Simulated assay, not measured.
Amino acid sequence: MKRKFLLLLVLLLISSISVFAKGQSSSNLRSQKTYYYETDVSIIGVFDIEEHYYDATIRIGEVTYPYFLFLSSPIKVVPSRADDEMNLVETGVNKIQLAMDSNLINKLKSKKAYGKKIKVTGELYHSYNAHHFSEVLMSVKSVEVLD
């Protein structure tokens, strides 16, 4: 009898923990700020690079150092149109790969912006090829170093 009671108690405890964890994760998803693809948005984060290796192209094993914006809080990114088949809903986004022209890159380098907080403005889009190292990317139109 004691054994059945303990087993029931353990199952009840596991069930309670599972329900609590699901409630926590869904409330975290609801609290994420939502951004839309293909519209101009401004986002603040920390600018840096990451080392990545190509693995799905003819440049297999080649190293690249793309630019990223690392966010302090995860965001949600959703299509701006109902018929958008390219841009998928992404939740929990905490880094965005930045696509910038040489003028913006030189501006960030001249201000020694690596590891600093910046504000970028541009259009978000979903990854679609082997040169993309995050689910969400931004075509950057302007950048401002905040630190």
Rank of each mutant, 00 (worst) to 15 (best):
D48Q: 05
N103D: 09
K107H: 04
S31M: 11
V41H: 10
V46L: 04
M100T: 07
Y67T: 06
R3N: 08
I60M: 04
G61V: 10
E38I: 02
D84T: 10
K141N: 15
D84Q: 13
S73K: 13
K112P: 05
K116C: 02
I44L: 05
R81N: 03
Y37V: 06
S142N: 06
L104P: 07
Y54N: 12
S31L: 09
S72V: 03
S72H: 08
K2F: 13
R59C: 09
A82T: 08
V145S: 06
V143T: 08
T34K: 12
L98H: 02
I60G: 00
Y37G: 07
Y35C: 00
G115L: 10
E144I: 01
E90G: 03
S72Q: 10
E90F: 09
G61S: 09
L9N: 01
V143G: 00
E85G: 05
Y114T: 03
L71Q: 14
K95W: 15
T64C: 06
L8M: 07
K112D: 12
V77D: 03
V46Y: 11
G45E: 10
A113Q: 08
S27L: 05
Y36D: 10
L29Y: 10
F47L: 01
P74Q: 02
V140C: 02
L8T: 02
S27P: 11
S31V: 03
A82G: 03
S18L: 09
L71I: 15
N106P: 11
F133K: 02
M1K: 15
M1C: 14
E51Y: 05
D101M: 12
E62R: 08
A113M: 05
P66T: 03
N106A: 14
K33Y: 07
L88E: 14
D84E: 05
V77N: 07
H132D: 14
T121K: 13
F5M: 04
L9C: 03
F68V: 01
Y128K: 14
S102T: 08
N28F: 08
I43V: 12
L13K: 06
S27Y: 09
T91W: 06
H132R: 08
Y114S: 09
S73H: 15
K2L: 12
V89Y: 14
K4T: 01
L108K: 02
V19G: 15
D40R: 06
V41E: 11
E135K: 08
D55T: 08
S15H: 01
I14S: 10
S80V: 01
E51H: 05
S110Q: 12
